[in-house]
Amino acid sequence: MSDFLRHRQVEFRLFVVLLLSCIALGITTDTFLTLGNLTSLLNNNSVNLIWAVGLLVVLIAGGIDISFAVASSVVQFVAAKVLISLGGGNWVLGFLLCGSVGILLGLINAFFIHRFRIISIVVTIATFNVFFGLLMWLSRGRSIYALPDWWTERIILFEHQSTDGTWSELILPVAVMAFCVGITWLLIRRVNLGRQLYAFGDNPEGARRAGVNIAAMQALAFGWSGLMAGIAALMQVNIVQEVVPNALYGRELEVLAAVVLGGARLGGGKGTITGCVLGVLFVAVMQNGLNLLGISPFAFQMLIGAAILVAISTSNISLGELFAERSRRQET
């Protein structure tokens, strides 16, 4: 346990803050700590979590991706068009289609980043706009409502009626989310590929000399982020039962904020699944809490921004350390 605390300071701190906020909300509102609220919290944040683990992989590898939410919109649109033209399809086809279109979009990012050594923030700002612009232009901004039944049907994994008659339930996206979290954990903790991603983010030159295939690492990181964007796209449609081209625009910042709050570092080499999940939950609880406390939803973004500013100002991961380190002999 002490080992855990030493290596997972950010996660632990976040966990304490999250726990305290939950307790506070439990006391100040009578709805927060109900099964119904907690399950809907999970249902509503499954898509964010799927994106978050994809983004985490990119951050670990030393990149940044802000195009994933818009990529999901593209995937939804393409999948809807193709599936409708195929006469409906099914879940297997849906996963295959969404996954591969998502991966393709991710690989576009990876290609420009690796082949031309352009910094990832610039590439993904560009692809963000290309994806969104083309999508809005080609779809003429029109939503698609006539979707295959299997796609929009609510699949309930668990339901429970409490004594006052309200229903609480967990739906399919929660299970898919759990699967994505688990498989990403496997990738980055338990498989050699994931460890190479960490190494690449930590010391790119060292990784190169050890023989790590840099192109493959960029492709894996952004491809994974794309795959998660594809799966998130499929699940988001399952929840809202429609394809609205601009519905996901802007969601990327919320997710990025959550992942960064969870201790992933811009610049690579750091970040855990635990932190990532805690980060998303923290943002979700904050939003939910503000809502329950009757505070204007407009305040939410402001508080998230402030929370990140406070978190980075108080964290000890810093260039400040680097400055202090100059007193030590450099490893030349």
Partner: peptide, 18 residues
């Protein structure tokens, strides 16, 4: 603090928008 400018300005952007 030595935080990454992308992160700091992004957080500021989210804050100001909010």
């Amino acid at each position: 603090v030595g935080a990454h400018p992308i992160l700091v300005s992004l957080a500021m952007m989210i804050f100001l928008r909010g």
